[in-house]
Nucleic acid binder design. Structure first.
Lengths: 114, 114
DNA sequence: TCTATATTCAACCATATAGTTGAATATTTG
DNA sequence: CAAATATTCAACTATATGGTTGAATATAGA
């Protein structure tokens, strides 16, 4: 199971994000994926391996050609971390707001009280 | 404005994600952040700069001490990319399902037609 | 079987990253 | 003003990363 470190560092490269975008239209061969990129086939092959290692791509072999497809489940670790972090923060902000409102109420109470 | 490359590579490090978690309780000084980590203050200071450069942390100076706080808005680029990619995929799967249902309908039609 | 195709593997190079230590800067305190 | 504190800056090292080229492997086709 790939770690969140793997997932996020795999995504932290624009070539690799482009590759994922390319695969939105369906599976492609290594050389099809490489074609629009301004780098060697080998370089793209390495990027593919990184994505695969992160669980973001699935590889299928047919004869001498490899077909790659995107594995949306691979995004889960990253998506979950981000959502968890956002949620944590939302909670904090809510608590802060509650506290502020309580302060405000106290203040009003105080003002009313003299 | 920090790029998605910055955001994702900043998050792709467990020390930095821990720092963000530490800040969920509120702002902290550089040395407070560094304390639980098994590395030099300088190393942590560098990680903080990376997070700051990615727009994930906000720095406030008070006298000789710097207070860091988490900036949840900094997660947006990463969160958006992931959501966009997931959405794209969902759309593709929906289209596929629709196509399969159409095929199924055609087949039934064919069978009925003899 | 010989040749072409699709791809990986291996070695290498340049640059980036994560860590170190030591010195410099800014501010507070005695 | 001198000393302590909080932090950054600078220089260095080791390792990781992204790229290259050339050779190896596996399969398809003449």
């Amino acid at each position: 199971m790939p770690s969140i470190d793997h997932t996020l560092s795999a995504l932290a490269d624009s070539t690799r994000r482009q590759i994922i975008a390319q695969l939105s239209m369906g599976e492609q061969r290594v050389s099809d994926i490489a074609e629009p990129h301004q780098m060697s086939l080998n370089a793209v092959s390495k990027h593919i391996k990184v994505l695969e290692g992160a669980g973001l791509l699935i590889r299928r072999k047919e004869g001498r050609t490899y077909y790659l497809s995107f594995n949306p489940a691979g995004l889960a670790p990253a998506a979950e971390w981000i959502e968890r972090t956002r949620a944590m923060w939302t909670k904090r902000l809510d608590a802060l707001e509650t506290a502020l409102m309580a302060d405000e109420a106290d203040k009003q109470e105080g003002e009313r009280g003299g």
